[in-house]
């Protein structure tokens, strides 16, 4: 019983870490790839074109 509870708690904390990592990655992608700020657009310009993300 104790083992099962321990293992459930571990799975839950793993899941939280996984969701956090995915959220972090998507935030980075959104800012670098999609955000429309002029400064960001200008600095990321060539790379956005290179990976085929909508740019202009």
């Amino acid at each position: 019983m104790t083992t099962a509870t321990h293992s459930d708690a571990k799975t839950d904390s793993n899941l939280v870490s996984i969701v956090f990592a995915a959220f972090l990655g998507l935030s980075v992608l959104f800012i670098a790839g999609f955000a429309s700020s002029a400064t960001l657009h200008d600095t990321a310009h060539d790379m956005r074109h290179a990976i085929g993300f909508a740019c202009h």
Binding site: A21, G25, L26, L29, T43, M47
Partner: peptide
């Protein structure tokens, strides 16, 4: 800047990739 953003964007992709693998 292109190299900087290549690394940034691929680190973003990598976070998603590793999270889904995990």
């Amino acid at each position: 800047l292109t190299a900087l953003f290549a690394a940034t964007i691929y680190i973003g992709f990598a976070f998603v990739m590793v999270a889904v693998m995990a």
